[in-house]
Write a protein that binds this DNA or RNA. Structure first.
Lengths: 245, 245
DNA sequence: CGACACCTTGAAGAGGTTCAAGAAATGTGG
DNA sequence: CCACATTTCTTGAACCTCTTCAAGGTGTCG
């Protein structure tokens, strides 16, 4: 395997605040370093894990970009999320001791391997780590609620706006530009995630360009009017029922 | 409040296998009884918790039926799930110390209150409980993946079929009939959950009746052909691309 | 440079929504 | 226990958003 057993210290990782609890003392940090069993490089287009793979660890993304997708017996697939550096993958595997989705790298990536047995062990020792793990899982549940809202309630332009706003927000939190995005995924993958066809994604991008909200150059998106994008989300689907009472 | 501080033993609860880990010895079971801070009755139509409420505990449903829904600033709402006895609610609140959705009783219900501090405390002591909590959260994440698949990929009849199959399956696991269901929710709530209008739900029910798959009598559904319902799920959306290579 | 995947745009069509009306069930108060 | 108000459900018809099919253009990688 391409697993490096090289021990790398979380204590010196600049993504630490994203992966680990904050406010630890040095002793605790030292112990937590032993939480990482190693790193693994994932080439673009290959999987970190697949549906049915035995669950042994969760993964923190160090560099790169992933998608997760579920598959049905009849060959359908649904992208359930896009993950970037500092985010955790693999929590789906806990309940059945096997993964329930595929995690596929959208660019050459590197993850930290965190064996789940070890996490549980250290969690029993450190309340802060325990709480942190619970928060990560809860955050995933809340994120999923947002996706359900998007898929169940929003129209095409609202979905794409929500997708873009979410993306730049997460990138901004990692020190990237709030206005320049390079999409790591295809129109087809965006469409699959948002429950629409790739043609609709393309058309909606074009519409945003016409409206002067964004510029599109293939996968390079420039957000010219973030507030307009946000505005698309806060407006009810149809405004024909505003009774002035 | 309508909180009963009456201590009730999990050890004698017939829903134990649903809420708690299996295979505990008596000593462990005794300790776990102290996990329940009490019970609370929720009248139909009232909330167990609301968006923004401080998070203190998770809840195991003893009797009754709930829906959870998220709300947007602009007044939209999305039903994110229906919960029945033996299922756990409230995990959404962990990450922000406040709940991120409303939990509303669809009939007079009763829940066991499990203070989360106490859960974390006991989890550090009992590995089996720790693993159990992790599994419950992971199960929720996997369930959400299924809903995304449903909302993102399926057509109206497939969604409703998936909904019915899931419902009878869960009811059957609790000892109820596999063919008789009394819906606790309205067409509007079903439609909101499935990302469709209540009219479409009604029409799709009628179509299933025409096809001899179910009988509908208001909220009383009789499933005449469960395999036909299941079959709706395993068939690709359109069968015009089956290349025989 | 050529093969391939990806993206854009147009036009026709379908599935689901919206609006509307009436029927059935449920709850409330006398 | 019945009458009435309210909510819920069903069905029809017109409409609309998004899909499907098609074709051409653009970018990318070996």
């Amino acid at each position: 395997m391409d697993t490096k057993s090289l021990k790398v210290a979380c204590s010196s990782c600049n993504l630490r605040e994203l992966c680990l609890p904050v406010g630890l003392n040095n002793e605790e940090l030292g112990k937590l370093d032993s939480l990482i069993a190693g790193r693994r490089r994932i080439k673009r287009g290959t999987t970190l894990y697949k549906t049915g793979d035995p669950f042994t660890a969760i993964y923190a993304i160090r560099t790169g970009f992933f998608k997760t997708e579920v598959n049905t017996p009849d060959g359908r697939e649904q992208v359930t999320g896009f993950q970037m550096m500092g985010e955790i993958m693999g929590l789906d595997g806990i309940v059945q001791d096997h993964h329930s989705c595929d995690a596929i790298a959208l660019e050459d990536s590197e993850v930290c391997i965190m064996p789940f047995d070890r996490i549980e062990e250290l969690s029993r020792e450190f309340g802060t780590l325990q709480r942190h793990i619970h928060k990560i899982m809860s955050r995933e549940i809340v994120r999923d609620q947002g996706v359900m809202l998007l898929l169940g309630n929003m129209r095409a332009d609202e979905r794409l706006a929500a997708f873009l706003v979410n993306l730049v927000q997460r990138l901004h939190a990692r020190g990237f530009s709030q206005s320049e995005v390079v999409l790591r995924m295809t129109r087809k993958e965006i469409g699959n995630y948002l429950g629409m066809q790739l043609e609709t994604v393309s058309r909606t991008f074009s519409k945003f360009v016409e409206d002067g909200i964004i510029d599109v150059n293939q996968r390079h998106i420039t957000i010219k009017d973030l507030e307009a994008l946000r505005g698309l989300l806060n407006t009810p689907p149809s405004s024909h029922c505003n009774s002035p009472s």
